[in-house]
Design a protein around this nucleic acid. Structure first.
Lengths: 207, 207, 207, 207
DNA sequence: GATGAATGAGTGTTCATTCAT
DNA sequence: CATGAATGAACACTCATTCAT
């Protein structure tokens, strides 16, 4: 009754991978547009052309796709970040490296994403953060906290320091993604300058 | 037909006000803990001890409480912010004034709030932002954007500048609320230093 | 605490009667406009200017107002109908008398009613029949059934005969009420002619 | 992505059609017994043995089932009526044809319906009219109005004439359905005689 | 493995009715 | 007796999830 056996060998596997990826892509979009709560499983599978039940062949629950997206992001990002930390001679360099890695990741992961959504149509109660952003973002946070603990960073309240650095990185990153073309370099320069030297480090309005 | 509404200005009115306030308080808590979507009207009224239908004697919809909370916050905060802006001689002073006003407001509005909630029990997908924070926060954003437009602030990309300042103010503010005792002065000092001079402006780890 | 004692003696009773009547009038309107199910108690008392609870000082339930309206109509109408029946020499005369009585009653009871409602605004699922119409209408039905049983009327299936007469009387009556000015005479003439002689009894289109 | 929807044209499709029909049948019953407002979606699906949510796999709303029932009725009936009109040489013949078509339709559409409901259990505020009756009934009304406009019918007030004819047809039809066996011929004869010649046209009681 | 209909707990909201003031 | 806030059962409808095909 099922046509599965008719498939050329190998195709089956391909389809499986492709379906999984299709669901992940759709989910990233939908979570980004609607937020976790508002997004429905149907919203996600509708974009894939698959049937509702098929979703559950790949993920046990709505939450699981979210987690998959997040941990996939983290898994890809962690080594990049680790490498950057290893290479960095000092704190300043590390900050730049970390942020650059983060922005490159964002730009890549969301290349296709926000590109086609109407930028004005902001939903109420939605922050427009994909699971991957949230996850990767946590990696950075931890790196900063460690670095501070190690004493390389300023001795101010580490919690505040991490919060502030992270906050800048995150929100500037979001702005970066909302623009065309995506300018990783510009965003990195700005974020780093801001983190290191605050407004004073920025080009001043003429006297 | 009816002989005047010579209401005893007594218990009736009092409980009405008290109930409304109880619902608002409960709503602030619930929205803060669960986020707008996850929070249910039943969650809110359960905390008040009132009956389900009673909610609708005070607010037309779930959305209306949210908006009420937000606009009440904005309404109380706006004049404070305006006053601070008027008094500020320059941009630096304005930034400090705005942030201080913001933190004072937060500390006051949420005095009772987070105090009793188990700090570890963080819900997934929730940012822990009450409607009031979101609203007041927008006021600050606009003030900064205006200020930047006026040229008082650095000439860098205004969108990024605003995003970064706001980001710092918001996240440091959130951290501040999570601690006991709430230290408005300390948080303000940190945020202002960070915004103005970045990490360099912070006390450095000893050489 | 209650101001009741302050009322001039007698006024109290008057108010009571007036309130009851106000509720009945409002209820007739609302039932007519919205139908029993759609009409809410609040719709009714809103038109009286009274408070929600006051409704229940006069009627035990929503259903009770409906019944009160219906039986009040029937109570007023029954003697009129009986008188007409007594005076009528034969079946034909009785039919005319009954219908005329019915239409006069309707015209009187609803004098104020439909007058101000926008005629086009028909609600879905609503028949526009007040409780009084329904009740009085039943009186007429019974009279006709009795008359038929007595043999004064045609020997055809009494159930059908009654149904047909009643149907004509009711629907023509409704049309009559929908027009300005209300022409009891014209409607009566038409209904009687139709009942007695059918279409053939009506003025024919010219040959 | 998905390999074609080569559905087994089997049980799936069948139960889908059967379920839809079951819901329609249940809805007809429930609307007929309780009226639109009083009837709840749960009342309807309870009779089908399906789950609450399943209702919404077939109809978007309570209103949509009602409309579906009504328009299905109208769709089936309209051609019958049109055919009868075309064949009718004159107004008299048309009236008979229209009424017969209406009664045949009713008898068929409700064959199973009223048959099993306890005839005494009349609900208050309910007219016992299914959506189909209401719809088909409107078709007849329009036909009569047109016919009158064309001049074939008596020159009396067309509004009254239509109202009266319709009233007879409807109420006699309802009575017909309430009896066992259903006698379409008898009901048609009666209604036509009544419309054309009124009571005078009926067999008189012996002198 | 894909399908999509079935499920039923849960949501926001309404409303007849009660009862302290 | 008037008042109007409180009550809670009930409703229409949604949606994550299951499962027969």
């Amino acid at each position: 009754m099922s046509e599965a056996a008719v498939l050329p060998p190998g195709k089956r596997e391909l389809t499986k991978v492709a379906n999984r990826q299709a669901i992940l892509d759709a989910a990233r979009e939908v979570f980004g547009e609607l937020g976790y709560e508002t997004a429905t499983v149907r919203d996600i599978i509708r974009r894939t052309g698959l049937a509702a039940g098929t979703f559950y062949n790949y993920f046990k629950s709505k939450d699981e796709v979210y987690v998959a997206l997040a941990s996939e992001g983290a898994r890809q990002f962690a080594p990049l970040l680790k490498a950057q930390r290893a290479q960095s001679a000092d704190w300043e360099e590390f900050v730049r490296a970390a942020i650059e890695a983060y922005y490159l990741f964002l730009a890549d992961a969301h290349k296709s994403w926000l590109s086609q959504r109407p930028p004005g149509e902001i939903q109420p109660h939605v922050h427009g953060e994909t699971p991957e952003m949230a996850a990767v973002f946590n990696e950075v946070r931890e790196a900063i906290v460690e670095e501070i603990a190690r004493g390389g960073a300023p001795a101010a309240d580490p919690d505040y320091v991490a919060a502030a650095c992270i906050a800048i990185a995150r929100d500037v990153g979001e702005k970066m993604l909302a623009r065309r073309p995506i300018d990783v370099r510009g965003a990195t320069d700005f974020a780093v300058a801001m983190i290191q030297g605050g407004l004073k480090a920025l080009p001043q309005a003429e006297a």
